[in-house]
Design a protein around this nucleic acid. Structure first.
Lengths: 336, 336
DNA sequence: ATGAAAGCGCTAACAC
DNA sequence: GTGTTAGCGCTTTCAT
């Protein structure tokens, strides 16, 4: 652990530290030959400028934080993929924080991000729309925030989402068109923006079709999968719906399991459709109709907006809503 | 952007900066009342110690790097989940780097990690087993490295993997037991440790069963999905195997697609089995037999080993191999 | 129990 | 084109 640093490198080369520093930052006023000599020696001694020291000095960390509810989830892993692809282009580092849908954890993470560790934050939130002061505080400290997927609409910054309401409206209409008369809705985390919007789309479709809205058909699931499965099974048994609109991929998977267990035939007895990014949806039994979200693109867009702000050194980001539409992929699970 | 810091906080309270510092690190020699007063004021002014400055001083960043080939992959996202769960317990931060199976990127990332940014590295590698000097260099700088899943066996540190050889042996035997006479093998990235081990398991099973080893049945796929699909389709058509042992989840998914397109019935014409962590494997058509890897557990174990080293401030980690076995989950895709 | 001061490794203004 | 130096915000001896 003989730790090489800028001073030692300077001594080795009989140069001053500032010259070394310039060599690493492509300063104009440095002799090309000296620069080459420096970089050469640096390679030889395996020297890399200490980013902590540099960041402390410049007040720029060249890192961003990505805060998401979970990662073992196709939507988020694709979105992170998109984010990483633009962060990589900018040579930024990416910190990941998982809230596990827990608002208190979100609060804790954000608090720890207040002081220099990151230049900006991308977040898919865990709370309802009253709970955004912690993020505004961050922005007040000069750290820009961009929301994606699950957002706080009242916070004045850019939000990147899919067209949750319209997609849900479309999706539910599709079920109706396929002949469903009694459509159930599966969701969780009812305080979330997306949950509400999707539910609204569902309700609007029912209204437009003059179909009754029945509370018993709307199942609020749990973060615990076993519990959710029970809730779904109970609803299926008691209500006997002929259609299911699921707001989240995992709930549709549970619903498939429930149907298998209860001998309910899809799409004969019950048609199912869900928000999802599962690559294997087409290979399921039966192939699952999905509202496929542009997860990667949402990640890229959100990151692009953030970097644009970082480039002009401004924590002020337009209060706009970027919508990247989903597409309904019809498959056998909703066939007539 | 009025940035509060330790000095301003000290002035506000008519205390010295060192006292403030002590309050935040539970130093023994500080008056309980003063400490409370300090923390109170800190909350009020929304002060958080600057981690960059602190890290620079202490030479500890309280962050680790996780380097993986990709993230939109059930295995890795579950493994990261496991890693994050222990990092969270230790209140460490997690940086994510995606190599996209590109060794050059791995090299670049590791180089940038050399100087203070992280205290340790967890990596699932992208190269073959001759290419680990960059990681040994890291360790020489006092930054411990732990491998998981895809490892460099020759590097002297802990590796955490599943039992790739045995699982593959078991899996291939299972196909043989189910009556397969002509078993194909799908893989990619042939320089990787896991790819080799899995292939060895496959070959060993053939040998033990005195079945011929045929090169034409072993398909090396590409990182490009479309290309892989073509390769698989060609093999299926030309060779007409009655069994497929796939080393990677995505390849099995492609194989399902190919079968659907070519009218090959699973498991009647062809039995398939793959390494996978897909939750929906059981819901596929037909339900897919999998070798399910303990991805979350592998992540947790690797992280635990790393943190144990960090706690005793040592970059020297036992040169051992921790094996967390996979389980073969038999489903309809390999039924007689 | 509290404070003064040196220094972690770097950058950037300024001097030469 | 290169060097000197102050200082980013913190921690940590060492005095008091």
């Amino acid at each position: 652990m003989d730790s090489i640093n800028i001073r030692k490198l300077a001594e080795e080369l009989n140069l001053s530290v500032s010259t070394i520093s310039k060599a690493f930052r492509n300063s104009y006023d440095i002799n090309a030959a000296t620069k080459e000599r420096i970089l050469e020696k640096a390679r030889e001694l395996n020297y890399q400028p200490n980013p902590l020291a540099s960041s402390l000095r410049t007040q720029k960390s060249r890192t961003i934080a990505v805060v998401v509810p979970e990662i073992a989830n196709t939507f988020f892993s694709l979105a992170i993929n998109g984010i990483e692809s633009v962060a990589g282009e900018k040579e930024f580092h990416v910190l990941i924080y998982l809230t596990h849908e827990d608002y208190a954890r979100e609060l804790g993470f954000i608090r720890h991000l207040q002081n220099g560790r990151v230049d900006g934050v991308l977040i898919s939130v865990s709370g309802g729309d009253a709970d955004y002061e912690h993020l505004d505080q961050l922005r007040a400290k000069g750290i820009p925030v961009v929301f994606f997927d699950r957002v706080y609409y009242n916070s004045n910054t850019t939000k990147v989402t899919t067209n949750n309401f319209e997609s849900s409206l479309m999706a539910t209409r599709h079920l109706i068109r396929q002949g469903c008369k009694k459509i159930a809705h599966l969701y969780h985390s009812s305080s979330l923006s997306i949950t509400k919007e999707r539910k609204e789309g569902y309700l609007e479709a029912l209204r437009q079709a003059k179909m009754p809205v029945r509370e018993e058909l709307m199942v609020e699931c749990d973060s615990d999968q076993a519990k959710s499965l029970q809730l779904i099974r109970k609803m299926l048994k008691k209500q006997g719906p002929d259609g299911v609109f699921s707001s989240f991929e995992k709930l549709a998977v549970l619903c498939y399991q429930a149907c298998a267990a209860q001998g309910i035939k899809i799409p004969g007895d019950l048609k199912i459709l869900t928000f999802s990014n599962l690559e294997s949806a087409a290979l399921m039994d039966p192939p699952l109709t999905t509202i496929t979200q542009p997860a990667y693109e949402i990640g890229r867009q959100a990151a692009s907006v953030l970097f644009k702000a970082l480039e002009k050194k401004s924590a002020v980001i337009a209060n706009e809503h970027i919508i990247v539409p989903s597409v309904l992929v019809e498959r056998k699970s909703t066939k007539k």
